[in-house]
Nucleic acid binder design. Structure first.
Lengths: 292, 292
DNA sequence: GTTCCGCATGAATCGATAG
DNA sequence: ACTATCGATTCATGCGGAA
């Protein structure tokens, strides 16, 4: 299996025009958040955020396949003691463009930034907006099932006997059905609230989101060999995760420093041999973690 | 201490006009959700939700004290496979009325309704929108502090070094602070994500929210003897909790059956004797729980 | 090789100070 | 008056060194 990772330096609004219609299975990104400070990288003023984003989302609508999904990680800032409304406005305007606002997942940041203020608590969540082109879209729910809670533990105690029997039958039949039954016993479908800690270990490049975030969306909305796009690549988290999970991906970044950094670390073409998949994947992962 | 609980039968839009300006410390409510089926109780069509709500929120703005808070529990329904945008539109329109949208808390429903759909997961969260009249409002953060995590344990052992340094720096500025800092060691301020299970004990009347929800807001935004308003009383949860916590309250309900039910259970005037407060409160609570 | 503990750090926010 | 910068505040997490 050949996996391509293609990255571009430039403004998404322009670069996206090069991509063909209906060619992407999943768009996952975290755009630069609105910022009052104009000098900062990516600092778009809250008042101009929607008009800045709409031309890009229009192109994204074009390149996304009809059964694809657009996952948008975003959270409004506090301005003058009030939450800004640009995310609300963005949702409303994107619907006018033709997007369907299917769902809003919540990313609960277990280790949010500390602080104390007289009139507000710490902000421990961000939005994960799911947009679609069509009511029918690909969704592989089984891929993101989670282990059951305490219920599973009490079950596991009594399993020792049953366990072996099922194991034998699994081996005996050699078919997947038993396995899936097995899995279903201990696994449950998740809700629309994701509990993930932000990554705070990496000194060199602080990713906007932990790898678990794009990983969860990729599992849920794509399969191996699919095409994933991140129009605001940043430190390349989406693309690295895509490569690791055997998905083709495209990344676009406007800041040369970020672009060069990702370019020096990414492998444009990865060959995954069918027989040594697991091993190869592990080696790649181990080799890459310390770099970032 | 005398605590009054006043309930009205009628349409909030009209009944609210009887209340004086700047007389309420906290408004907490969960309005009837939008519903396509018009026959349902409180079923307001999604398209008309905002225009239905705005005249009411205008009155709420009038009756709220300048340093008061409006807490709104709401969540948009799925219509035709898409999340409706009436909550977004409502926030934008309420700001035009003069409301400040201070914060959006998330109520994470730990035990959300079970179910499985091909294109979406279970909905495990609701919005808790905080609106204010003024940037300055009453907030009693200490009242809702929560025990610290494991971190506190390891910290208590090594208090010697860092804490002495911090102490010295603070001794210079003031006295009372030191004590409160020491006491607070075990407690931390919460975040804007609330983890509460929905109540599933009461079969007779399913409240829209668990008692913990209004309780948390009352602790945070009011003190004993304050005035609390719920313009969509429903089964009266807000008012019962207010009474138990020694807050005056007003409830408005348009459905006679609900009104009568609450009327039969609530005590319009409760006398809390200063010296036997705790005991008296406990008795009242015990007597009421089984009824609802 | 485990387990334990110390430590840096993270899409933050407010209020005061400075231009 | 209005905007930009800075310091103070504060806690869950996971890594790395130590026992």
């Amino acid at each position: 299996m050949k996996i391509n990772t293609e990255i571009y330096l430039g403004d998404s609004k322009e670069v996206l025009k090069k991509l063909p219609d209906n060619s992407v299975d999943l768009i996952f990104t975290s755009p630069p958040y609105a910022d009052q400070r104009k000098s900062t990288y990516g600092g778009i003023h809250p008042d101009k955020y929607v008009s800045w984003f709409l031309p890009i989302s229009k192109e994204l609508l074009r390149v996304l396949k009809p059964d694809g999904t657009f996952g948008l990680n975003i959270k409004e800032k506090v301005v003058n003691g009030e939450r800004s409304t640009y995310v609300m406005e963005l949702i409303i305007e994107m619907r006018k463009q033709g997007w369907l606002w299917t769902e809003e997942f919540i990313w609960h940041k277990k280790n949010c930034f500390p602080g104390k203020w007289p009139n507000r608590f710490r902000d421990a969540w961000e939005r994960l907006l799911q947009f679609n082109k069509d009511k029918k879209f690909n969704m592989y729910q089984e891929e993101v099932m989670v282990p059951m809670g305490d219920w599973a533990k009490s079950r596991l105690k009594n399993l020792s006997e049953t366990d072996k029997i099922r194991d034998e039958s699994k081996v005996g039949s050699g078919f997947g059905k038993n396995i899936s039954n097995w899995v279903d016993r201990d696994m449950a479908y998740p809700t629309n609230v994701l509990h993930l800690a932000t990554e705070c270990n990496n000194k060199k490049h602080s990713a906007a989101f932990p790898e678990g975030l794009p990983e969860w969306f990729m599992k849920l909305f794509t399969k191996e060999g699919d095409m994933i796009l991140d129009p605001f690549m940043g430190s390349g988290t989406t693309n690295f995760v895509a490569s690791r999970m055997k998905r083709n991906s495209i990344g676009i970044e406007i800041v040369p420093e970020y672009y060069e950094m990702v370019k020096s670390q990414i492998n444009p073409v990865e060959l995954y041999l069918f027989e040594s998949e697991a091993k190869y994947e592990k080696v790649k992962l181990n080799g890459r973690v310390p770099i970032r």
